[in-house]
């Protein structure tokens, strides 16, 4: 039964944007999501892109990773893809939907997987680095075991029951390279959005004003209050000579001092 959990996988792929050149490319975490889906070897793998069918070259980079076909939900420019994706995914009924963290182009709010999870009534797990069927010891069938990435390189294990939408963390296994031949041979399959779905333009985005990003000055942690001399000292002087100093202690005394200091810092139990 555990196989059934991850047998029907859908991957949502977007067109990325190179951070320096601004060129269209495969999205970094989207490609990792596809890599994760390919590594699961599901019985059915569907890759979906929603948007105007313009940048076929960027999408072909995904096909070059070993996909045979890629479904494109054709939407007018600037339309909200959420409703169309939910309607399409409902028909597919995947047990696992994988996607990148947030779009590299456009608004990039990272809301899409959450809205889709809500639309599909699925559990939502962010920042996944590994997905697999739950251990035999965990017994309950229909559960997926997930490893999540946390800050500072830490990892957290979770089990999730039922349908699942997961976003992939950049520290997940790297995406394989895209090969030219498979990228040419792969099929991009345009699918019209069902008539029942109302495709609307995004009003919020048209209300926003956009301008080129200018780097902001870095926030300095200046201690306010005190006299000008104190503030000057805090800003200019490096902390030196304020620590505890032990000169030529015995090895045991030195080790004890280090041990106590580490315990105080919470580094040792």
């Amino acid at each position: 039964m555990t196989e059934a959990v991850l047998s029907n996988v859908a991957v949502l792929l977007s067109i990325g944007r190179h951070p320096v050149s601004g060129r269209a490319r495969r999205g970094a975490t989207d490609a990792q999501a596809l890599e994760m889906a390919l590594a699961l070897r599901p019985r059915r793998l569907t890759a979906i892109h929603a948007g105007p069918a313009a940048d076929a070259d960027a999408l072909r980079a995904y096909l070059g990773m070993g996909l045979e076909r890629l479904t494109v939900l054709v939407l007018p420019d600037g339309a909200d893809p959420v409703e169309a994706l939910i309607a399409h995914l409902r028909r597919l009924a995947p047990s696992l939907v994988l996607t990148g963290r947030q779009a590299e182009d456009g608004e990039g709010s990272g809301m899409l997987p959450y809205l889709i999870a809500r639309g599909l009534d699925a559990a939502m797990v962010p920042d996944v680095v590994r997905v697999g069927p739950a251990d035999a010891s965990d017994a309950t069938p229909g559960k997926a075991a997930i490893v999540q990435a946390l800050p500072r390189g830490q990892r957290r294990a979770l089990t999730v029951s039922g349908r699942l939408v997961a976003t992939v963390h950049p520290s997940a296994p790297p995406a394989r390279a895209s090969a030219f031949g498979p990228a040419r041979r792969g099929v991009i399959e345009p699918v019209a959005v069902p008539v029942t779905v109302e495709v609307t333009a995004d009003l919020f985005l048209s209300e926003c004003e956009h301008r080129p990003w200018r780097p902001k000055p870095k926030l300095m942690r200046v201690k306010r209050g005190g006299s000008a001399l104190d503030r000057l000292r805090a800003a200019t002087e490096s902390k030196s000579g304020k620590g505890q100093l032990l000169v030529n202690p015995t090895a045991e005394a030195g080790a004890l001092a280090i041990y106590d200091s580490l315990v105080e810092q919470g580094m040792l139990p």
């Binding site: 951070p19 182009d105 608004e107 990039g108 926003c208 004003e209 956009h210 990003w213 200018r214």
Partner: peptide
């Protein structure tokens, strides 16, 4: 906020 992969500033 930053949008478009950090290339635009979006105000609202």
């Amino acid at each position: 906020r930053q949008s478009s992969g950090g290339s635009l500033e979006t105000g609202h």
